[in-house]
Structures are given as structure tokens and as C-alpha cells.
């Protein structure tokens, strides 16, 4: 997680920034299943952030099935699929797209521009194969 940066002065809680970052690193293939995350202590020292905040981010990641922990060994990226299933997954994704499209509207992007940006972003992520 060499590139993990947090912005403590932002409005977004720091633990959420860490959660989002880890998810993104997995989705773009920079973190793989069984990769080990730094210890709470090491990450706290590296980022100069309260260890309780790091611990909270790790708890959320584990609760969402993104990571798992082995006693005494640390926290690892999980191979299992996310806990959210079926229609709920698509509903959440629709919400995310709609928020992005609202931004596109206010930024004055054309349909063509928005579609290109979406396709370009899609190439950087590794979505699951069609089943």
C-alpha cells in the first residue's frame, strides 16, 4: 500500500478513505487475494494517523468480506466474493452511476464524452468475467 494517501482535513472520515482505497486497489489489480495488509501499528506510523482509526477501517473491510484476519499473522485480502448479493448489487451500482452522471451533467459533458470516460475507466479495472 505504498501509494495510500489520506487527507485528514477532508470532510470524508479517514477510516472511510482507507476502506475506499483498499477496495480500489483490489478492483484495479494492485492488491491481490492473500496479499497482506500492513499492521495497524505500521500503517498508523506511516500515515501519522491514530491507530484506532486504522483499526476501524480494518474492521469495516473485514465485516464487508473484503479482507480476513488470521490470528497473529495479520490481515489479508480475501478471495471470496463480496457479501452483497443479487439485485442489491445492481441497485447500488445504479446509484453510483447516477451520481456520476449527475456530475457529468453539471460539468457539461456530452453523452459521447461521458461514454468514452466510462469505457476508459472500465479498462483500468478488472471486473469479473461473464458467467
Amino acid at each position: 500500500m505504498a501509494f495510500l494517501r489520506v487527507d485528514p482535513s477532508g470532510g470524508e472520515p479517514v477510516f472511510q478513505q482507507i476502506v475506499d482505497h483498499v477496495k480500489r486497489e483490489i478492483a484495479t489489480g494492485r492488491l491481490h487475494p492473500e496479499d497482506r495488509l500492513p499492521s495497524v501499528r505500521d500503517l498508523a506510523k506511516e500515515l501519522v494517523i491514530n491507530p484506532n482509526t486504522i483499526a476501524r477501517a480494518y474492521q469495516v473491510l473485514e465485516a464487508e468480506g473484503v479482507t480476513y484476519s488470521r490470528r497473529g499473522a495479520g490481515t489479508f485480502i480475501a478471495a471470496t466474493k463480496p457479501v452483497v448479493k443479487g439485485e442489491e448489487r445492481r441497485r447500488r451500482f445504479r446509484e453510483a452511476i447516477e451520481a456520476a452522471l449527475a456530475d457529468a451533467f453539471h460539468l457539461g459533458l456530452s453523452e459521447e464524452e461521458a461514454r468514452k470516460a466510462f469505457d476508459a475507466a472500465m479498462k483500468r479495472f478488472r471486473l469479473v468475467e461473464e458467467r
Binding site: 498508523a44 506510523k45 501519522v48 491514530n50 491507530p51 484506532n52
Partner: peptide, 13 residues
């Protein structure tokens, strides 16, 4: 100041 922050982090960790 960073020294003080590091110390606080150590104390908690």
C-alpha cells in the same frame, strides 16, 4: 510537532 504526533501514536498503539 510531528514528533509529538508520533509519540501520541506510539502511546496508543
Amino acid at each position: 510537532r510531528r514528533e509529538f504526533l508520533d509519540v501520541m501514536i506510539d502511546l496508543i498503539a
